[in-house]
Each structure stands twice: as structure tokens, then as C-alpha cells.
Amino acid sequence: MQKIELEISFFGAFRKYERTGPLRLTLAAGAGMAAVKAAIAEALDPAASDLLKVSALADAQQVLSSAHVFDTSAQLVLLPPVSGG
């Protein structure tokens, strides 16, 4: 099965988990949003799970929908609820 590599950068309240640069995950091509979030949860402190549920994955152009399928390797960002202004 073909593998993809996802590089995930953290922002806001997730910054504290970015110890040595972005999180790198290797997953099967075709993974869905739930699988990617499950892999992130496994890599993080269990205390981050509630925040992870309400956080979005995005690339530089757009926030990815819950139906997004990860077919290729990508650089992503994990975005907790926003509070600018």
C-alpha cells in the first residue's frame, strides 16, 4: 500500500507540543480526516484530545473539510479555535 508523509505545524495552544519542529506522520494514502486526527492524538499528550476535536487541519490556501481525503504527502497546519481581533 502506498504511504504518504504529513508534516503538521502547530499554532496557538498547540505550540507547546511542537518540541523539535513539525510533527511528521506516515499514513496510508487515502487516509481520511478521522484517521489523520487519530494519528495526531496518538502523538500528543492525552490532555490535548478535547482541543484536538474542535481544531481544524488546513494548508496554506484553505481549511480542509471533514470529508477531505489525503492522497499525497503534504504540509499541513493544526488550527485550534481562533480568537483574533
Binding site: A13, V54, S55, A56, V63, L79, P80, P81, V82, S83
Partner: peptide, 12 residues
């Protein structure tokens, strides 16, 4: 502390 905010997830 980081402040609470608005989720960008649809139907969080």
C-alpha cells in the same frame, strides 16, 4: 493562557 475561540471545524 490561550483564550477560547471559535472553531474552524464544521459542526464541531
Amino acid at each position: 493562557e490561550w483564550l477560547d475561540g471559535t472553531s474552524l471545524v464544521e459542526n464541531p
